[in-house]
Design a protein around this nucleic acid. Sequence first.
DNA 1: CTGAAAGCGCTTACAG
DNA 2: CTGAAAGCGCTTACAG
Lengths: 343, 343
Amino acid sequence: MKDIARELNISITTVSFVVNGKSEQKNISAATVKKVKNLIEKRGFKPNSVARMLRTGKSKTIGLIVEDISNYFFGSVAKIIEREAHKNGYNIFFSSTENNFNTARDLIAKMKNSSVDGFVITATKGLRSEMIKLKRENIPFVLIDRLVPGIKASYVILDNYHGAVELTKHLLRNGYSKIGFISIISDMSQMVDRKKGVVDALKDAHITMTEQAMLEIPFGETNEHIINAIKDFITGNPDLDALFFATNYLGVFGIEALQRNNLKIPSDIAVVCFDDNDIFRLLTPSITVAAQPIDEIATHSIEILLHMINNDREQNKPIGTIISPTIIVRGSSPPKTDVKMVG
Amino acid sequence: MKDIARELNISITTVSFVVNGKSEQKNISAATVKKVKNLIEKRGFKPNSVARMLRTGKSKTIGLIVEDISNYFFGSVAKIIEREAHKNGYNIFFSSTENNFNTARDLIAKMKNSSVDGFVITATKGLRSEMIKLKRENIPFVLIDRLVPGIKASYVILDNYHGAVELTKHLLRNGYSKIGFISIISDMSQMVDRKKGVVDALKDAHITMTEQAMLEIPFGETNEHIINAIKDFITGNPDLDALFFATNYLGVFGIEALQRNNLKIPSDIAVVCFDDNDIFRLLTPSITVAAQPIDEIATHSIEILLHMINNDREQNKPIGTIISPTIIVRGSSPPKTDVKMVG
DNA sequence: CTGAAAGCGCTTACAG
DNA sequence: CTGAAAGCGCTTACAG
């Protein structure tokens, strides 16, 4: 910039104004603007964004903190968020928490330190005090996939409760009443809501969900452990006629467990799962799911965040968006009588 | 930092030295160091990394450019790279090219402009001149998954050629000789090598791969288009006894196409695929694959990049690493005689 | 052992 | 219409 100014015998200020498209409001003569623009083009000049950052306090980067970027759901969300962010001139720092509180806390600290302008966060347990800090420091953020209890913040989440209710009702309607619920141990809102949805839908049908019919697996177990836990659960509950998996990857492991137990879907047992993916669509039979509208979730979250960044934060009321899941009925949960006739 | 210095009645310089752990070589008295450290702790002082960036010219961020972050392979690679980068104090900007040259070029420009210290790149077609620019500007980068023709740079790639040879030999050994090859149109090295591997392995067995037995689909088609293309290909080649899918997602769509055609694997047709994933492992029958050692690929690439960043770049010779794929034989390609007996 | 000062490359209030 | 100058928060060569 200095060189451009010197070469043109004008001040740095003037160059800066045309670089930043302020030539109009600053009344720079058309001739000067043209001269500067030409030389910028010729020299391939790009303003140093680090210097600009330091001066303006805006980094034009957003921190994206997800549970696991290699998971289909989060990967897809990340892709869309990144695309939308770039459209608006933002870069994305990303990171996976693996649902670990310490990792999440460190990541947020590190990214704050790198002066991100805002966050999109899938929370972990225990993150409340970090959220409070962010609010105090007026750093905008939007929670996705799950809430943080006691925090009033912007969010985009799925209507997990009604999704679970609908999925359960679908099973009941098709004649399944001995439903096993398989989830991970979690007090995160999305898991709590799914469980509550199942329990309430059953209660509505005058069925009580027993402790014995529920399997809740700690997060972070090895694949083999999870598969074996599910295997043992199924063996220990031979009377179940349907399984409700509370999330994506548990469903995948559950199917592997059923295969190892030589149980056929749906003749031996029906299966439904929260979250869709390619596997569920392609298996024979394909799996009935409550699918998350990924596109909607991603675009809403980045939109809300950019809105918060670009408007006076103090004045901003948190924006909450609840997205309805789509129930996709497939071959894994046909009317029970049909199964009996076939089987 | 200024505040700390003022509060302690010492110079900013001194504070800077202890912040940067240079108190030893700069001979700061132990007492001063302690005083400063205490106050830093108390005030929760964090050095402003943007200012540091501007001053040092190092941003401690790495640009990760992949084909598609929502794809299992790239998502997994990204997760590991990010983890290793954080361990070394680096943040990661990421982005998906969708195999589009313009997107890739813009992303590289944008990230260069954000002063990333280096790149990990899955190249697209036409990226050669960008690579030349990076080299000229002494910005370190490592290519993963595929090379750029004519560019001498660091890379971590799979031994695609031998993987394809081995997978084909496996089919031949099990009695399949009429092999259909399904790929995407691409002159990227990894696709070229896979095709060459298949053709050469067949030639070795005195079989000529015909144009008719090959389907090459343009990148970026809709899912439905791809599935239909494969469906038509299969219908048009009723004599094939095995299908070789050149990549992950084509295999997934191929299986859907086979299902729609009511063809059973392996009794009607055997299937092998490049790249493993959960679907292939869980399907009945499971699918024989050449799996990429994701962990190895990711850790090598970030290691090489950090090495290049931390050592004098001029002096550095490019480091090339070729990783061998693992052939995992599963139910989709049993010895042909067995199939006949069952079928 | 410690400090004053220059400078990284910008932006912007202020002055003319 | 245009420019001189301060300052964003650090690092580091230089001086003492």
